[in-house]
Structures are given as C-alpha cells and as structure tokens.
C-alpha cells in the first residue's frame, strides 16, 4: 500500500513539471538548456517514484508520463548533438515500446525514434547492433513505415556501394531530426569512397575527385587528401597507381609454414 501512495505523491509532484516541459518543448525553437533542466528534475522523480516499468503496478499514468518525457529527452539529445545521451534515452524507452506494448497505447513517436536509433547505429558503423534492432520489428513495418524504411534502405545502399544514392537520400529524410545522423553518416561514407578511389582509380583530376566525394568546398577536400596522403601532381590530378601493384613473388613465409608443419606433426603424434 505504501508504495502506491508514494507513487501518487510523486506523480503529483511530477505532473506540473511535465506540463512545463511539454510547453517548453513545443515552443519554436525550443530552449534546449531549459528543457534539459526540466528533464533532469523529472528523471530524478521517476527514479524515486518507481515510474519505470515493473509488473506490479496497474497504474499506467506514471508510465505515460515517463515515456513521453523520455521521448522528449531523446529528441532533445539530438538537438544538442549528444549521442550517448540519445542512446541512454533509447535504452530506457525500449521497454516501453516492446515489453509494455499491450499496456499503454502506442506512442506516435515510436517509429520515428526507433528509426533514429537505427540510423544512429548505422552512422557509427555498428552493423551487428543495427541488425539486432531490426529483428525486433516485423517485416511489414520494415517495408512500409517511412521512418524505418529510410535507414534500412540506406544500409542496403551502403552494402552494395551505391554511395550516390545515400547522398541523394539526404535530400528526402522523413524528419528533420534525421539530418543530424545523416551528416555523420556522410562523413563516414566519404572516407569509404576515398578508400575505394585509392584501390580502383589510376588517376583522377582534382575537380572530379571533389565531385565523386560530393564536396563543394576545396578546404574539405584538402583535409581528406591530407588524411589519405594523396599527392597532387603537376597536372592537377591524383595518381594511385602505387596502391594497385600486387606484391607478387614475395619471400617464402618460412615461419608460418614451420609452425603449421609442427602443428601437424603434433596432431599426428597424438593420433598415433
């Protein structure tokens, strides 16, 4: 009995802050610092009041407030560009989305945030985690929901190597929040393309290199060329011929062969 009353009092405490938070967040543009303050206050209350999912309480009001707050927290984290905070918020939200699916009505932000999470994982090249998250969603959602479909098709483009489609996809993001991760993703992709260029091109002119890398700004290009150690030749082009020569007829790998043979001998010994 004592715990339920504790929740009630905490709930009463939390509600006004929650209202304030909602107001603050819906203001355009939202004041990120202020929202953050309110969020922290609310989160403390949740931890004390036990609003987080448990099997015992039948009361779903607390769950509602907690979920909506966490959703705002996740979006706020993106505004701030704070990826660890976003991941934390998502980790807390997941039980609400999956385990409590039947107890509280579905949130309108559910797929938006899950899609953002997928993109976040993709932009950090955490493909195993990406697929683990994807498995939790039904094939139908993956194929139809715009928020989910976007990162999924991005992953496919990346695997194939159709990098220009990824650049095109930046133009039609399903929500402005996606842009933050898209920018990170594009930077990772530029590196990938640069590696591909080294391996596959014999030579490429300065202007073309910029075009292939989707860069308009000469400074950014200079940064990438420096990072990869490309040298600009006299005719304003890069040459990569060195990278492609196969080192054939290398010396006999004596060490490796010796260890293998000794290993075979040992195993044979055991068998006999």
């Amino acid at each position: 009995m004592a715990t339920t009353t504790a929740i009630d009092t905490k709930l009463k405490e939390a509600l006004p802050i929650y209202e304030k938070l909602k107001n603050e967040w819906s203001r355009k543009p939202p004041n990120v610092g202020k929202t953050d303050e309110l969020l922290n206050a609310l989160k403390n209350l949740f931890a004390e009041g036990g609003f987080y999912p448990s099997d015992s309480s039948e009361d779903t009001r607390g769950l509602h407030v907690a979920r909506d707050t966490l959703e705002i927290a996740a979006q706020c984290a993106i505004q701030k560009g704070d990826i660890p905070a976003f991941e934390r918020a998502l980790a807390q939200l997941k039980p609400f989305y999956f385990d409590l699916e039947n107890r509280i009505p579905e949130s309108p932000y559910r797929y938006l945030l899950l899609g953002l999470n997928l993109l976040c994982l993709l932009s950090q090249n955490r493909l195993a985690d990406f697929h683990t998250e994807l498995e939790l969603l039904s094939p139908k959602i993956i194929q139809t929901n715009p928020y989910i479909k976007h990162p999924v098709s991005l992953e496919q483009y990346l695997m194939e190597g159709s990098y220009n489609k990824v650049f095109l996809a930046k133009g039609n993001v399903p929500s402005p929040l996606f842009t933050f991760f898209m920018d990170i993703l594009l930077n990772t992709i530029r590196d990938e393309i640069a590696y591909c260029m080294e391996k596959s091109y014999r030579q490429v002119s300065l202007n073309e290199a910029a075009r292939i890398l989707y860069l308009n700004n000469p400074e950014e290009l200079a940064e990438i060329t420096k990072k990869h150690g490309w040298k600009l030749e006299f005719d304003q082009s890069f040459r990569f011929a060195d990278n492609q020569i196969k080192h054939e007829n290398e010396r006999v790998p004596a060490d490796e062969i010796a260890t293998q043979m000794i290993q075979y001998a040992r195993e044979m010994e055991i068998i006999i």
């Binding site: 194939e160 190597g161 159709s162 990098y163 220009n164 990938e192 393309i193 590696y195 591909c196 260029m197 391996k199 596959s200 091109y201 014999r202 492609q244």
Partner: peptide
Amino acid sequence: YIVAKAIRDGVIEASI
C-alpha cells in the same frame, strides 16, 4: 561506385 567498391573488396581485379 558499385564497381569501385567491388574492386576494393577484392571481388574483381580491375581498374577504373
């Protein structure tokens, strides 16, 4: 782009 990636992944031996 796809061919470039294939070359990098060692699927084919070619240059562009």
